[in-house]
Design a protein around this nucleic acid. Structure first.
Length: 349
DNA sequence: CAAGTTCCTTCTTAGGTTGC
DNA sequence: GCAACCTAAGAAGGAACTTG
């Protein structure tokens, strides 16, 4: 154990000792707790600075420090020395608070309730029985899965919106390319001669392109859009799409292959689809650390972010891995399996 | 000027491979 | 076994170019 770890344990022990179960501290106890709390903050100040930088919250330094202080307070309240060391426990509390702060600052762009003239209605006000007696809202909740389904539906709604935007961007790209090709394509000589005979016509609205050609282009775009949406995002089969669109399975495959490539390029180039582009990257590739001001996610290369899973194992298995006698690992119940080169990290109690 | 040739793009067909 | 994938080859259609 390092000096800081030992000092943290001692300071937290002081806080716990001076916190009676009923919450009524004496003045002396309050002074001890305040001193110990200040000492804890001083000990973990370098770690707090590190996390604030890592989470890209340098621009909101004061708020981030406040969140970290709250995290330390919560960590002390919930800390159980029998389960883990405080130094480990407080890390996760701080990260959780900072993550939450970043989410509020960078993601939640909803207007305030006052601005949209929203009214908050208490569930209790809605749950009055026939006889006028108030009923507990919980008794009215018959569907325990409602929350999960609501969240899933909201997630689906957002993803459908993102997909529609991405496909719109792809179709716009195709339209741009198609119109450019029509503009570059010289008019057939016979048609040109006929136009000369008819005299000049103003067609600025169609950029000098024959409206019939534009109609054909739009029809093709609509067909391609349908194919891409159903094939790429809804997993329709080649057979189904071939039957319904009238083109061969192979042509459907070619269209979707070209679309997938272009969609990936659009997603990578447009910040609106940054999350999709991020998701598209192979998991095995190590990402380059992004500047803190542009990335919403913590640096994946940091050792504590490499955690992949927590797996329960038997003491006998761990004794083999660590080449230690079974008796010395009897109290170990779980190990953290990390993605790093060292496959196992265990703490022997 | 009409018919033939060439070039380009889109789409289809055939046959082999791969993964579940 | 089947669906999907991939490659190669070729058909179809439109337009420019060439030739008699």
């Amino acid at each position: 154990m390092s000096k800081i770890t030992i000092a943290l344990e001692a300071a937290v022990a002081t806080v716990i000792e001076n916190t009676p179960a009923d919450g009524n501290r004496t003045n002396r106890q309050r002074v001890y707790v305040d001193r110990a709390f200040a000492h804890i903050l001083k000990l973990i100040a370098p770690r707090i600075r590190h996390f604030i930088r890592q989470y890209g919250l340098v621009a909101h330094w004061d708020d981030a420090e406040q969140c970290c202080a709250i995290a330390v307070h919560r960590a002390i309240e919930a800390y159980d020395p029998a389960k883990a060391q405080f130094t480990t426990f407080v890390n996760w509390q701080i990260r959780g608070e900072l993550q939450s702060l970043r989410f509020r600052l960078m993601t939640d762009q909803r207007p305030s309730a006052k601005k949209v003239e929203a009214t908050t209605v208490s569930l209790n006000a809605l749950s009055v029985g026939v006889d006028g007696e108030e009923m507990s809202p919980e008794t009215l909740i018959a569907d325990e899965d409602a929350l999960a389904r609501t969240e899933a539906a909201a997630s689906d709604y957002l993803s459908e919106g993102a997909i529609a935007s991405l496909v719109d961007a792809y179709v716009d790209h195709l339209r741009k390319v198609g119109i450019e090709a029509l503009r570059r394509r010289p008019r057939p000589k016979r048609e040109e001669a006929a136009l000369r005979r008819e005299g000049p016509r103003l067609r600025t609205a169609t950029y000098g392109i024959d409206p019939a050609e534009l109609e054909k282009l739009e029809a093709k775009l609509a067909r391609d859009r349908d194919i891409v949406v159903r094939r790429v995002f809804q997993a329709s089969t080649l057979d189904d799409l071939s039957l319904e669109t009238g083109v061969t399975k192979e042509r459907v495959r070619q269209i979707t292959k070209r679309a997938a490539k272009t969609l990936a390029e659009i997603a990578a180039a447009d910040p609106r689809f940054a999350v999709m582009a991020e998701y598209d990257r192979p998991a095995t590739k190590r990402r380059q650390p992004a500047p803190a001001t542009t990335s919403l996610l913590p640096d994946a290369d940091q050792p504590h972010n490499l955690l992949a899973s927590v797996r329960a194992i038997q003491p006998a298995e761990l004794s083999i891995v660590l080449a230690a006698p079974v008796e010395s690992v009897e109290r170990v119940e779980a190990v953290l399996v990390a993605q790093a080169a060292t496959p196992l990290r265990a703490v022997l109690h």
